[in-house]
């Protein structure tokens, strides 16, 4: 049971933004621009960062749904997603992406955990200022989304199939869900 009276049977953040669409609108706009807007990081890589941070925050709804979205976007390389969640350093992703995931993981703990050495390591592997910025902001944003979803105890489905369906929808982008028909 959610802590507040959100629409019944609607999972996760969707139930919360239906409860309060005024704040839902900018939240979905932020997700869209961060994860689908123009960037030299692919939408798959950005979803992976979102899933990685959510996993570390132990937010089952967010990591399951963003991992599903990332699997869809990685297409034939979908196994990368679970390898990163299992052991990021050993996963078959580029060293640059590992350096960015390392920074995202530090942001998840606390902003002050990010040190100049972490930034230099990513820059030496070719990360641009914009990529560093976007990585930190995605990690910071999911530190928000995770707390919003779990802090209000929104419904978390346990069926993996429910997340697979969400992933397909999310891969197309983020639009504010409408109120269920009465």
């Amino acid at each position: 049971m959610a802590h507040i009276n959100v629409p019944e049977g609607v999972p996760g953040i969707r139930s919360l933004v239906m409860f309060r669409p005024e704040t839902g609108k900018p939240l979905y706009e932020l997700a869209q621009v961060l994860l689908r807007g123009e960037s030299t990081l692919s939408p798959a890589e950005r979803e992976l960062i979102a899933a990685y941070v959510s996993y570390r925050n132990n937010c089952t709804f967010c990591y399951s749904s963003h991992a599903a979205a990332a699997r869809c976007l990685y297409e034939d390389d979908e196994l990368i997603v679970d390898e990163v969640l299992k052991d990021m350093q050993q996963a078959p992703v580029s060293d640059k992406l590992k350096a960015l995931l390392n920074i995202a993981g530090k942001v998840q703990v606390l902003g002050t955990e990010v040190k100049q050495a972490d930034i230099d390591a990513a820059k030496n592997l070719g990360a641009t200022d914009r990529e560093l910025h976007d990585t930190v902001l995605i990690a910071a944003s999911f530190s928000m989304f995770n707390r919003y979803v779990d802090g209000l105890a929104s419904l978390t489905p346990t069926d993996p199939e429910a997340y697979a369906e969400m992933g397909v929808r999310m891969a197309k982008g983020y639009t504010l869900p409408q109120q269920p028909q009465q």
């Binding site: 920074i103 530090k106 942001v107 606390l110 902003g111 002050t112 955990e113 990010v114 100049q116 930034i119 560093l132 910025h133 930190v136 902001l137 990690a139 910071a140 944003s141 530190s143 928000m144 707390r147």
Partner: peptide, 11 residues
């Protein structure tokens, strides 16, 4: 939590 991490995570 977003703002605090954004501000400090970017030094």
């Amino acid at each position: 939590c977003l703002y605090n991490r954004y501000v400090d995570g970017m030094g």
